[in-house]
Design a protein around this nucleic acid. Structure first.
Length: 695
DNA sequence: ATAGGGTTAG
């Protein structure tokens, strides 16, 4: 390839002319051209100086590849940085501190922490700027402890920390230390305030973020667009922030608009999001992605697609993030077809090579039980991240193939990844499906031994696993070890007690939860009502149903109604049950009537039972469950002719009444094969072999 | 120097 023509040079260039060319590449963010020019300069035996390197490094740092969000992570840039490093040493320009510092900064931005550190160690002299680049780099790459250690070392060596260094250290500290650092800053600039607001927000201290913002206003430091963005990501109220941004003129900024769209989306307000997007003078992909994501959350596929049409009208192209967002919205069969079309778009545009998009595709295919496709997608990812593995593991579990999930988990371990909270909670939920207590216990041990935090998700999954595997006392122990259980954790425990017929424990748990200031949701009430039903606590059930509607303004779902019908029916209060069904705000479904029929069986109510069975037949004649119930009801009353008639109807309708499968825990591979080789489960004994000796 | 859209989980 002719390098000269590719960068438009035909004669030996002078250094100043090369520098001005490099400057133009920096402006157009063209890393590749800048490097080509540099290579050509070497071919022409022009000696680069410190400015040449400085410009070249700037071109690398500011480079933005066409679409991928992970531009700076690419292997290519890392390779280029290493080459520049070599030439830097060869030419002796590394004696210029500012050039070495620029390279150090690039290494840090690429995540090459070790290279950066070595470069720093090799530097003959350091100044505050190079120290800052090093400390800031460690902090940005999540090496918080290192960053703090270096900060101390820097102070020991007599350097006075600059405000920048202090700011960059804030994310490395826990919050209290950050506050101390912050108070150390005498002249607090907008940037310092923004950093503190951001730190509060990222740690979930939303009230503190708001307080810091108020203090900042009191001290007459004017907010800028970063303040708005940080506030919004600290869950600030979108309306009042919107108001503030409008008054200060900051609402004209695209990133503020994007953040507002997102924050309105958390309140399910897509209408304001749409208006904000429309107000943008320059449409851009990031804001549009935020808007699409708000529609995705709401399940409004039509609006997602019209956003996509809008994007095409503007002749914009999707990038990886936008693609992932769209794929995430494909949740029904129609969506799956569209998802396939977007897979094709990804293949044509090259986007599907991005591991982000590949992960999104894996979840898409698993959502529709296409596990084989998901498997092959994973195998094609070159740099498999933990998220890629997790996507497939959770995909298998969701598709009802927990043993495949375990197989993938084993492969993941082999490839050198350690499970995180998401891996573990997915696997635990897979254990529930298999009733595989032993493996669940191993995961629990793994969590304890590796000091994994038993946080919301893992804690809830553990409790669920123990409950579904018959060990309520273990579930209780886990529950009691959690200091501040979240709503889902409380819900698990309440419905667990209810499942075991421990209605008083369930109700005690419910009131304890409210004492702790946790607001119940619909799932909580499902557990509470089920507890009342199981325990025959009619009055308690009535009371809680009323509390749910009147005190918490919730509209009951069909499941809540079914629960109540069961409560009345089991107590023999058939008139109340029927009145209740008549007064429902929605059409009773199969489950509601089936609950009543089952109560008829208990109380041998043949006449009502026949009436209900007819209802059920018209609602869903393919669901044969009510045949069995009816047949049992007649049998209890000794009405054998009727039993025979029902059995005959059952045969005619094709229902065999025995499609259930029981799974019991297997303690050896032989057991497993015996128990499951003939069932629907895709359990693969070979996959389990290594697991048994895993820990 | 501080920041904007996204994926995996109960």
């Amino acid at each position: 390839m002719n390098l000269a023509s590719s960068v438009g040079l035909s004669t030996k260039p002078s250094l100043p002319s090369l520098h001005s060319l490099l400057n133009s590449y920096i402006e157009s963010r063209n890393r590749k051209q800048a490097l080509l020019l540099f290579r050509q300069l070497l071919e022409y035996n022009v000696k680069p100086n410190d400015l040449t390197f400085s410009l070249l490094l700037k071109a690398c740092t500011s480079s933005s590849s066409s679409s991928s969000s992970s531009a700076l992570n690419s292997v290519n840039v890392k390779r280029d940085a290493n080459q520049i490093h070599t030439h830097l040493l060869k030419s002796g320009v590394d004696r210029f501190m500012y050039v070495s510092t620029a390279l150090l900064d690039l290494y840090m931005k690429l995540g090459c922490v070790r290279n950066a550190h070595r470069l720093f160690d090799d530097m003959p002299d350091r100044d505050v700027v190079s120290w800052n680049a090093l400390i800031c780099g460690f902090s940005r790459n999540g090496c918080d402890f290192e960053a703090l250690k270096l900060f101390v070392q820097m102070c020991k060596e007599g350097f006075f920390p600059h405000q920048t260094t202090l700011v960059s250290l804030v994310p490395s500290c826990d919050l209290e230390a950050a506050e101390h650092l912050f108070e150390e800053i005498v002249e607090k600039s907008v940037v310092s305030w923004n950093t503190m607001i951001g730190a509060y927000g990222q740690n979930g201290f939303f009230d503190e973020a708001m307080l810091a913002f108020k203090r900042m206003q009191e001290e007459n430091v004017p907010a800028n667009l970063v303040t708005m963005v940080s506030l919004l990501s600290a869950n600030a109220d979108p309306e009042s922030t919107h108001c503030h941004a409008t008054k200060t003129g900051l609402v004209n900024d695209a990133s503020v608009i994007t953040s507002l769209i997102c924050q309105y989306a958390t309140r399910r307000n897509t209408e304001s999001g749409k208006l904000l997007y429309k107000s943008l003078p320059q449409k851009n992909l990031v804001s549009l992605t935020a808007l699409m994501s708000s529609y995705t959350e709401k399940g409004d596929l039509f609006q997602v697609m019209s956003c996509f049409a809008h994007l095409q009208q503007l002749e914009m192209k999707l990038d990886a993030v936008a693609m992932v967002c769209i794929l995430h919205g494909m949740k029904d069969p129609m969506g799956f077809c569209l998802g396939l079309a977007f897979h094709a778009y990804g293949l044509k545009s090259g986007l599907s090579a991005d591991s982000l998009v590949a992960n999104g595709l894996i979840s898409l295919y698993s959502r529709f039980d296409k596990i084989e496709t998901a498997f092959s997608l994973l195998s094609e990812i070159h740099e498999k991240t933990l998220i890629s593995w997790n996507s497939l593991i959770s995909g298998c579990v969701q598709a009802g193939r927990p043993s495949d999930a375990l197989e993938v988990f084993f492969q993941m371990k082999m490839s050198g990844h350690s499970p995180d909270a998401i891996t573990i909670s997915s696997l635990l939920s897979g254990c529930c499906q298999l009733g595989y207590l032993q493996f669940g216990e191993r995961l629990h041990n793994y969590i304890l031994r590796n000091n994994h935090e038993v946080e919301d998700f893992v804690g809830t999954a553990l409790i669920d696993m123990y409950i579904k595997c018959g060990r309520i006392e273990h579930a209780e122990r886990v529950f009691k070890s959690i200091e501040e259980p979240c709503l889902a954790t409380w819900n698990s425990m309440i419905s667990g007690y209810s499942l075991y017929g421990l209605e008083h424990e369930a109700l005690a748990c419910f009131s304890e939860m409210q004492n702790q200031g946790i607001k119940p949701d619909k799932i909580t009430f499902l557990g509470v009502l089920a507890a009342c039903t199981h325990g025959g606590l009619v009055q308690e059930g009535r009371k809680h149903f009323q509390i749910m509607r009147e005190q918490f303004n919730m509209v009951p779902d069909l499941q809540h109604y079914a629960c109540m019908v069961g409560l009345f029916g089991r107590a023999g209060l058939f008139e109340e049950a029927l009145m209740f069904i008549r007064n429902m705000e929605m059409e009773p479904d199969f489950a509601v009537w089936a609950t009543l029929l089952s109560a008829c069986c208990i109380h041998q109510e043949v006449k009502l039972g026949e009436y209900v069975a007819r209802k059920l037949f018209f609602l869903d004649s393919n669901n044969g469950g009510f045949f069995v119930l009816m047949s049992n009801l007649y049998a209890v009353k000794g009405m054998w002719d009727e039993v025979a008639r029902v059995r005959e109807m059952m045969r005619e309708s094709g229902g065999d009444g025995c499609s259930g499968i029981s799974v019991i825990e297997m303690t050896s591979l032989e057991d497993m094969n015996v128990n499951l080789s003939s069932s629907k489960s895709s359990l693969n004994a070979n996959a389990w072999q290594p697991l048994l000796s895993l820990y």
